[in-house]
Amino acid sequence: MSAYLDLQNIDMTFATAKGEFNALKDVNLKVQKGEFLALIGHSGCGKSTVLNIVAGLLDASAGVALLKDREIRGPGPNRAVVFQNHSLLPWLTVSENVKLAVDKVMADKPKAERREWVMHNLRLVHMEAAADKRPGEISGGMKQRVGIARALAMQPDVLLMDEPFGALDALTRAHLQDSVMEIQAKLNNTVLMITHDVDEAVLLSDRIVMMTNGPSATIGEILTVDLPRPRHRLKLAEDPHYHHLRGQVLEFLYQKQHKAA
């Protein structure tokens, strides 16, 4: 059976001032439709590189990336990205930021429908009240919510998130994780999310893709998170299976891929 998203023998070599740098070597990954994947690994191992190849922002040096059996060539709104630093345009309001994406992907739809779609997606992330604010006037967590709304509004085939909550404090991060789970339960998107937070990976994902250290990083292990949904962080805290899964990721990261830092 062919996968929805299929990375085959991906190599990535960067040309740097000090010569060639082989970041990824022979990365193979199959993702099914509606799956939520977490990509975890030590900083600098090549997680963003994998995600950017799927986004089309980078071209793999070798191998192919297929989405719905078609080769990925260049970026496009069917692979929406939520960037770590929100990357909202500061001269546009919250709703205008989302509208920019909606106008692009729903160019053929009437204006009223597009406006409603903007508000619908802001409601999904609980940001409709801030629709007319500018990014400079809202908190980091709220900006990230808007970034998610903008990505969701594109109705992407794959939603890509690069450490979306990495810059947030623990409490805000927990709120956003809950929102992501709530949205995922409603929309059942195919999601590839980079994180360096083990609890986040176990809480949110169906499978955890663990990457080895670079250079020439590749996928070390894949852990299936067979915790039933809906998941609640408080209940999971007492769940021995949750702790077992968490322990497996930690073991991979801190024993098998111990990083001398």
Partner: peptide, 20 residues
């Protein structure tokens, strides 16, 4: 980041100049 947003949205040259 802004250029990445433009790339993901596939903004054309004119739109890129005008919007970003």
């Amino acid at each position: 980041d802004y250029m990445n947003v433009a790339a993901v949205l596939k903004l054309g040259k004119v739109e890129l100049i005008r919007r970003i």
